[in-house]
Design a protein around this nucleic acid. Structure first.
Lengths: 192, 192
DNA sequence: AAGTATCGATACTAAAGGTAGCGTAATAAG
DNA sequence: CTTATTACGCTACCTTTAGTATCGATACTT
């Protein structure tokens, strides 16, 4: 390394602190217009920023959305002592996040794009899913494949409801989802 | 009605029977290139048909995909006498269909498009989901909201796995999914 | 003052969904 | 056989959108 690892601000004009502005503009634009019509031009206009500035910071629309979701989600609050409490809090947390304006649409939209874009799929898996998967593995003491199955069920169900109805899942159904996964994962029954 | 309901072929040149060819070309193109790069131009070329012919029969790419999936799925085979057997057969059936080449990609892709296209979402819900929902309500004797939740869980989980990994769910995890929904729906516990 | 990197603005390319128009082919009716 | 009607293939076109290139101006370090 020719440069210190965590010091020595790089030369040139520093970036202005507008990531938060762009994230807010992204979510509100997606919320108002839907994912496909939330074009990068419109997001830039809503943020009061040039489109080229956005492409200077994020290499693609998909990565912008992923960063935006990472910012919106933050770390998973794993509260509770029993496995049932931990899982319940995680499901309620992600359900509430997906219900926030623009978040569910953005999540479903970027997920859809990733279906036919292996590069974006890898980014989604590594940057958005893996941190939460590892946190859950650690907190629950479950192997990777069981946690991946847990995420498939919870996130898949919530996104399917959002995609088919345009509305987030109501509390009663979220409670049913919690009951189902807790009763499935609380015991020792499991495949493989 | 000025015309008999099921006779009197309409005037003009009849359509040639190439729906099946287009459906096969659609699935194979989606399988090879993914949903987004399976453009209507490419599908038409693979089918040996002009693009304008496709747009003469289907008003949009989304509706072509929906018809293609309807053709690929066919009616749900509800086998078994107990509710557990009925649900198990339904889950295994849809999991196998989604695992067929191109079907899962096409399903996830059109689902994604529907997220930001209310017209397509309505078509997807009415033409693809409702027939199976009604059949399940009838066979299981469950109310609409419970069957919708069942579909959210099963299809959402399978599509999430497909979307995140690019591969259909392995048999062991499908079996776990069956166990989970059966144990959830076999008893009388339920919200609302 | 020199160097470097960011920002805004304009213009541009390429891909893809979807449309219009035209000549031709297939079928039914007169 | 002629006419009306509709489907097909073909070419050209329009529109939207992701992403790129360039340029002058600006902010900050040395």
């Amino acid at each position: 390394m020719t440069r210190a690892t965590t010091s020595a601000r790089p030369p040139g004009r520093p970036r202005s602190g507008l990531n938060a502005v762009v994230f807010a503009a992204t979510l509100s634009t997606v919320h108002e217009l839907g994912y496909a019509r939330a074009t990068v031009d419109r997001i830039a206009a809503a943020a009061g920023v040039a489109k080229t500035t956005i492409y200077r910071r994020w290499p693609s629309k998909g990565e912008l959305i992923v960063d935006c979701l990472l910012d919106a989600f933050g770390p998973v609050p794993l509260e509770g002592t029993s496995r049932a409490e931990l899982m319940s809090s995680a499901v309620h947390w992600i359900a509430a996040k997906i219900g926030e304006p623009g978040v569910g649409d953005a999540f479903a939209g970027v997920f859809s794009d990733a279906v036919s874009d292996p590069v974006l799929r890898e980014i989604l898996s590594a940057r958005l899913q893996d941190p939460y998967r590892l946190a859950l593995q650690d907190a629950l003491g479950e192997p990777e494949n069981r946690v991946l199955f847990f995420i498939d069920v919870v996130v898949g169900t919530l996104l399917h409801r959002m995609g088919m109805t345009g509305e987030p899942m109501v509390d009663a159904d979220v409670a049913a989802l919690v009951e189902m996964v807790v009763s499935r994962f609380a015991d020792d029954g499991g495949p493989t």
